[in-house]
Amino acid sequence: MGIHTSLETLMKGERRDPVMEIEQAVANRALILRLSGELDLKTAPSFKETVLQALGAARLHDLVVNLSAVTFVDSSGIGVLLGSYKELQRGGGQVVLVAPQPHVRTVLELAGLARLMPFVTTEAEALELVAAGRRQANA
């Protein structure tokens, strides 16, 4: 069996579910996404799609990403966070990251994300921060 035949068979086979779950909530015009699992090349597209769909469907101003249950992130996941940041920044919105695990935080900081988006420990803090940002913008 050549590689093309074997790959074709593989592609037609049942795919495993991506090893990431996303829970959504909206509070005070901020989209809250609670991710769990691994954020990599396989799962980053569904994260991106969720962000785009949710932001497109409602007039949401900010994005709060709860990373406390994320066990792995690489440049594919960081790309989606940066893309979301650019998208929201155009409308004056913010991206706030909540409670990344220490090894995930190391990767995010190495990519320079701490310069662009605040890291906080709770969703409540994140919501206070985006509310303050909006008040400042409207002042």
């Binding site: 991106k48 690489d74 440049s75 594919s76 960081i78 790309g79 893309g83 190495l110 990519a111």
Partner: peptide, 15 residues
């Protein structure tokens, strides 16, 4: 060559 990944791949490997 992929704007979503921001060229971070080799930077992470090096680090």
């Amino acid at each position: 060559s992929d704007p979503e990944r921001m060229g971070l791949g080799f930077a992470f490997m090096d680090s």
